[in-house]
Design a protein around this nucleic acid. Structure first.
Length: 109
DNA sequence: CTCTTGACTGAGG
DNA sequence: GCCTCAGCCAAGA
């Protein structure tokens, strides 16, 4: 059995937990860090269970800095509020100064 | 086993 | 810079 498979979800949660305060990252960045650059969708899919985990899924967005997963949160603007509470500017579900707050696990870890 | 769905991404027009 | 198409992999029916 491939160890990457059994750890995939867990690794996603692990990385997401390590996202610094006031920073965000993309699904692709996490996927690439896990060695599965082609499985960015799986990262998002894995985040479905993130709600029951201690994972700050609100810090994970797509490559455009768009809050594509906000619909999976409780409210309609919960994800945005969480980000703004951490100092991340969000307008129209899109993160402002995305490059500035972007956090790459590959480089940081 | 086959088909569908999805919190994605990169390339091309 | 925006829109569309195709590739990608995993889980559920």
């Amino acid at each position: 059995m491939k160890p990457e498979t059994i750890n995939f979800y867990d690794k996603v949660y692990q990385v997401a937990r390590q996202i610094p305060y006031g920073r965000v990252t993309s699904y692709g960045a996490i996927a690439k860090y896990l060695g599965a650059a082609r499985s960015a969708r799986m990262v998002g899919y894995a985040m479905n269970g993130s709600h029951t985990k201690d994972v700050p899924a609100h810090r994970v967005v797509n490559r455009k800095g768009l809050l594509t997963g906000k619909h999976h949160f409780d409210g309609t603007n919960l994800m945005q509020q969480l980000l703004e509470s951490e100092g991340v500017k969000v307008v129209e579900n899109q993160i402002q100064d995305f490059e500035t707050v972007f956090w790459e696990p590959i480089k940081e870890l």
